[in-house]
Design a protein around this nucleic acid. Sequence first.
DNA 1: ATTGTGGGATTGTTGAACGATTCTACGATA
DNA 2: TATCGTAGAATCGTTCAACAATCCCACAAT
Lengths: 223, 223
Amino acid sequence: MSTLAQSKADLERASTAQKVADMLRERVLLGELEPGLRLSEEAIGGALGVSRNTLREAFRLLTRDRILVHEHSRGVFVRRPTGDDVRDLYAARRVIEGGALRLWHTVGDAQREAVRAPVRQAVARAEKNDFSKTGSANIQFHRGIVGLAGSARLSDESDRLFAELMLAFRVAHEVEAFHQTYLPWNRKIVELLNNGTVEQAVQQLDEYFDAAEQDLVSRLVAD
Amino acid sequence: MSTLAQSKADLERASTAQKVADMLRERVLLGELEPGLRLSEEAIGGALGVSRNTLREAFRLLTRDRILVHEHSRGVFVRRPTGDDVRDLYAARRVIEGGALRLWHTVGDAQREAVRAPVRQAVARAEKNDFSKTGSANIQFHRGIVGLAGSARLSDESDRLFAELMLAFRVAHEVEAFHQTYLPWNRKIVELLNNGTVEQAVQQLDEYFDAAEQDLVSRLVAD
DNA sequence: ATTGTGGGATTGTTGAACGATTCTACGATA
DNA sequence: TATCGTAGAATCGTTCAACAATCCCACAAT
């Protein structure tokens, strides 16, 4: 069964627009294309060897993911989140992740492990002074929390929220902080979950969101 | 200030693709284009007088809203939600609306009124045997609940979930039931909220979701 | 009944074209 | 000097035409 699913994935050729969109998304999230930058149809299309029409389809896909913003007759720009955007993002995360966390005692162990494992691995690496994959570990932790809900739609939307938040950190020149200060919070949350005190875990998560939002907003308005 | 915002809205001309997408979305949600129907680029484009490229942009917009599904080299189809889709949708709603409802005691009266008012108006109309706008009233109620979170992104995503759910009801030939059986539940929820017993309101909402999901799924698999 | 194997229809992608809109730089006016 | 207006360049919005790639369907072969 899993082999069938795998071969199906192989068969699902991505369209040109999809491939272009994936490439551009990676470039943006890696910081090679700075927030606020305008993406010229002619320049990008020429560099990538695709026609304007195909490129515009790729732009639509990324606009949908809030990676780019479209302004009529002006073009598309790499999104540059504001303080209001950050507040909106954390308001959404509080509801989604808080609501998902409260399902802790209703889900199976596989879903719980998706929350515990990223923290455990991050702790193990930190003890060896290995901070290489510390960034993606945090995201995996929060993806695991959302996954408790058991909704692919919710997980997809959360991925978009994470990506947009990453852009905000980049605007604030705080990409490193995003990847380093979270670990104590996450350990505490997992500990509370393992104790069965879910409501306290939710409260801890809320406090983390409060601290992260406040820090990020202050750095954005100062800019 | 409001006049400025209004004139700005006037200036924001929708693109042709956007207008076409809005028209098609309305057609689909009104049931004029049945779930599963394939939308031919040539036929639709010819009928609406727009080029294939512009129409394809409109298709992309509706695909992002999960109104249409795109299959490579096969075309786009009106989405036809399955039982698994419905389960996914309600899993997402449970987390989002449950999480939002728990913010009841933290929000201002304007946001609370956005929850109460739709139910009050629906009750008033029902007493006069007026069931005309009973459908949108239910949606407004749930939009109000999501609005408690104070996140435009979350509200937008919820609108997409509602639209997709409407398609599921259409597949199950239960559009009317969707608009009629909800009122007692909603009244009870508002009553519990006014009493300050938020957790009981959340529980009541969960029970409503359980009942609605089970009913809808059973009608879908029977099809 | 199942499995090739064609032709026909539809989509994927490209390139060019032209009107519409925005941006920019330069000069006019107070 | 600063503000304003305007012409020209650059870019976007949309359409059209073309061709390759893919899918669908009917028919024949086993």
